[in-house]
């Protein structure tokens, strides 16, 4: 389980950004979580609830946006059905994973600045 070390890195980065901008409060942290990012949303949220106590994120809302793992053909763009072999049924070209479907991204932070 690596969700704790990820949340630790997230909180540290958000605090650093808030300090750089002289923020007086952090209201929300928006994270995009790809289905193939290797991160479990529930564990991530649990880790967040545990870890944020006593940090600058203590009162911040965590907004998680899931990104589904969808594949499409690299040549003709046709969608490849879920669970299918990752080659286009029409033209035989290999599939490509949707952008951000394998990523865990800190998208934005809502903070109060003077």
């Amino acid at each position: 389980m690596h969700e704790y070390s990820l949340v630790e890195a997230l909180v540290r980065r958000v605090e650093e950004e808030a300090a750089r901008r002289g923020a007086t409060a952090i209201h929300a942290v928006r994270v995009s979580l790809g289905e193939l990012s290797g991160v479990d949303p529930e564990l991530f949220r649990t880790a967040w609830e545990t870890f944020r106590a006593g940090t600058g994120c203590e009162r911040a809302e965590l907004a998680l946006s899931p990104v589904a793992a969808s594949w499409c053909c690299t040549a003709c763009g046709a969608a490849i059905p879920r669970g299918a072999v990752l080659r286009c049924a029409a033209c035989g070209a290999p599939g490509r994973l949707a952008e951000r479907a394998d990523a865990l991204l800190l998208e934005s932070v809502e903070m109060e600045v003077p």
């Binding site: 990820l6 890195a9 997230l10 980065r13 950004e17 901008r21 209201h27 994270v31 990523a103 865990l104 991204l105 800190l106 998208e107 934005s108 932070v109 809502e110 903070m111 109060e112 600045v113 003077p114």
Partner: peptide, 11 residues
Amino acid sequence: ELVPVELHEKI
């Protein structure tokens, strides 16, 4: 003031 700070970076 409440501002959204766009980061779009990997955790």
